[in-house]
């Protein structure tokens, strides 16, 4: 009875998933693509141990059930060095293989590692606020709230900090996250493979407005990106350290807002607020 229910639910799940899409398994960026591959490779390796373990559990429980008089009963058999060697040894070897994968992947996919590409990277500075995300483009001289747009197929160099409790900067379809911490500067390097609109969020509890901390990430063509940036630069209200303090106050407003950047060193100044005095 239980089996039927489980299978039924799994079937429902498959149907559901076909129609909704799973962000991490449908990557739109090269980092997320590599991470997905790693996830799947590791899964297959693990299944080498897990499938026999689960199968044997039920097989043995069934075969050696009390009512089965025909099965051998060896009540005192409790040792066999060969079998022990197998189930200590095989998993250990799998761990060694996985370790090699892990070691390589940790270096390959280090968030601080820039992406090799012929195209020039786009520098985007990110500040986690309460409870919104501020994106600063020092080269394009604009700033946005809860909306980060960038050209496809160009490396994105994110520099991340916070003016709030610890947050985590995450765009699942493009790649994994990294913590956003006040007084610290994290880096994340992503690149979108195609155009599209993706959902980003914070992945670390940062106070009562935490659920508001999601944002829209848009990958557009080079041309669309340029025109978007110049439109904002020409039309939007200016942002500098003075009116920055206003937007850094705890706020429920999640709608995107756009600014032209008056102070190229705004990000550094926000960071410096938390630096120990002797560094100045």
């Amino acid at each position: 009875m239980l089996a039927i229910l489980v299978i039924g639910l799994l079937a429902l799940l498959v149907v559901f998933l076909e129609n909704t899409g799973i962000a991490i398994l449908t990557p739109k960026g090269i980092i997320a693509e590599k991470q997905k591959q790693l996830l799947l490779d590791a899964t297959w390796l693990m299944l080498i141990v897990v499938v026999p373990a689960l199968f044997l559990t039920f097989f043995y429980a069934w075969k050696y059930r009390e009512s089965n008089e025909k099965a051998t009963h060896a009540p005192d058999w409790d040792q066999n060095i060969v079998i022990e060697a197998i189930w200590w040894g095989v998993p250990f070897i799998i761990v060694i293989v996985l370790s090699i994968f892990t070691w390589r992947a940790c270096y390959d996919l280090d968030p601080f590692l820039p992406i090799h590409s012929e195209s020039k990277p786009v520098k985007i500075q990110v500040v986690a606020l309460q409870w919104r995300w501020l994106f600063i483009y020092p080269e394009e001289k604009i700033a946005t709230i809860n909306w980060v747009q960038f050209p496809e197929k160009r490396p994105l160099d994110f520099e991340i900090t916070a003016d709030a409790p610890m947050n985590s900067f995450w765009i699942p379809q493009l790649g994994g996250q990294i913590y956003a911490m006040a007084g610290m500067r994290s880096e994340l390097h992503l690149m979108a493979d195609e155009t599209g609109t993706f959902r980003g969020s914070s992945a670390n509890l940062s106070g009562s407005g935490f659920s508001n901390m999601w944002f829209t990430a848009v990958s557009s063509s080079e041309h669309d990106f340029e025109s978007w940036a110049s439109l904002i630069r020409s039309k939007a209200q200016p942002l500098n350290m003075d009116n920055y303090h206003k937007i850094a106050e705890p706020n429920d407003e999640t709608r995107p807002v756009y600014y032209s950047l008056e102070d190229e060193r705004l990000f550094e100044k926000i960071l410096m607020q938390y630096m120990p005095k002797e560094r100045l």
């Binding site: 991490i24 590791a42 693990m46 892990t102 996919l109 699942p172 996250q177 990294i178 992945a203």
Partner: peptide
């Protein structure tokens, strides 16, 4: 074990 691979964890941490 899958999450112990840091780059995988980057995607699923705190999810």
């Amino acid at each position: 074990v899958m999450m112990s691979i840091a780059p995988v964890d980057f995607q699923v941490h705190n999810s």
